[in-house]
Computed example of a mutant assay.
Amino acid sequence: MPFYKVITLTADTILYLWKITEDVDYLFKSVRLKDSSLARLEAMKSESHQKGFLAVRMLLEHIGYTDFDLYYDEFGKPHIKPNDCHTEPVEVSISHSHDFSALVISEQKVGLDMEILKELTLKVAPRYMDVSHLENLSKEDELIKATVVWGIKESVFKIKNIVGISFKDHIFEDDFNLADKKCRVQLRFNNKVEHFDIVFDFIENYVCVCAMHSAPNEIG
């Protein structure tokens, strides 16, 4: 069973990773799915998406939940219900990319994004980030940092999920060093500013980024 790793990001935020080496049939037979999840799975045309979906359910069962404890709100955001093993409410975010599925459990609002390193992310960087943050880096670190920033924008958006938010025009990351594996971010939208703490890590040729929400303040 390729449960890959658990990473404690903060005192109350834990990341779980599954490396997908199984085929779809094995994963399907290893988890219990509610009817709505079966319908979602059957509608997926990509085998990669099917495996990512099922591997998330493997992770849930690994930490004492099941697909029956997971539900989505009207905006498509996942939530977990308390169960007999876990009686306290928690926040959850989910991501999968190619060979990995990931989920994060936290006591606070949280967003998670996992991205494979690919040149396209760097090529389109001017569309979503302040490219001055890539200055004086090696080509390799340019790609890594651009991917981290993309993950930052995605993870913040997963928390807010409001139509109209622009990655480049509304989400602003402080400049940061890759070695620190953390930074701060502001979301400036609808005359409010919200602050987020970001933590990130590197797993093989992937970047995993987690955003944690703090209360918004009015722009003065």
Rank of each mutant, 00 (worst) to 15 (best):
N83E: 08
E88I: 07
I162R: 10
Y65R: 07
N136I: 00
H98E: 12
E119W: 00
F189L: 02
K153W: 00
E194A: 11
T66D: 09
S155P: 01
V92G: 06
E194T: 12
D141K: 06
H96Q: 04
A146S: 12
H79W: 13
D197M: 09
Q186Y: 08
D174E: 14
H133L: 07
V131P: 02
E61G: 01
I144G: 03
K118Q: 15
E115G: 05
D201I: 06
T87Q: 13
H133M: 15
V156E: 11
I63G: 04
Y71F: 15
S155I: 00
H86D: 08
K139G: 07
Y206N: 04
E115K: 11
D113R: 05
T147F: 09
E74K: 15
H133K: 13
L70K: 05
L122V: 09
H98S: 01
A179P: 00
N177R: 15
E61R: 11
K77V: 12
K81V: 05
F167C: 06
E154C: 04
I171N: 11
S95T: 11
Y71W: 14
I171K: 07
L143N: 02
M114F: 08
L70H: 05
I203Y: 02
L70D: 14
Y71C: 00
Y206P: 02
E115F: 02
S132H: 14
N177V: 07
F176Y: 14
E119M: 04
A146E: 09
P89R: 09
E61Q: 15
Y128I: 09
H133G: 10
K109Q: 12
W150K: 00
V110A: 12
N177E: 15
L103M: 09
S155D: 00
F189H: 10
L60D: 03
K181F: 02
D73M: 11
L117T: 06
L178R: 03
E74F: 10
T66S: 15
D169Y: 02
V163C: 04
D197V: 04
K168Q: 03
V131T: 15
T121D: 06
F200I: 02
F75W: 10
L59Y: 03
L178V: 01
D174Q: 11
E107Q: 13
T87M: 05
E154W: 03
I159D: 09
D180K: 08
H62Q: 15
C183D: 02
S95A: 14
G76M: 10
N191S: 13
D69H: 11
L117H: 08
N191A: 13
L134E: 12
D169N: 14
C85I: 12
V193G: 00
E91D: 13
D169S: 10
E173A: 15
S106M: 08
K81P: 05
F157L: 09
F75A: 12
V124K: 01
V156C: 03
A179C: 06
V185K: 03
I94C: 03
N161K: 12
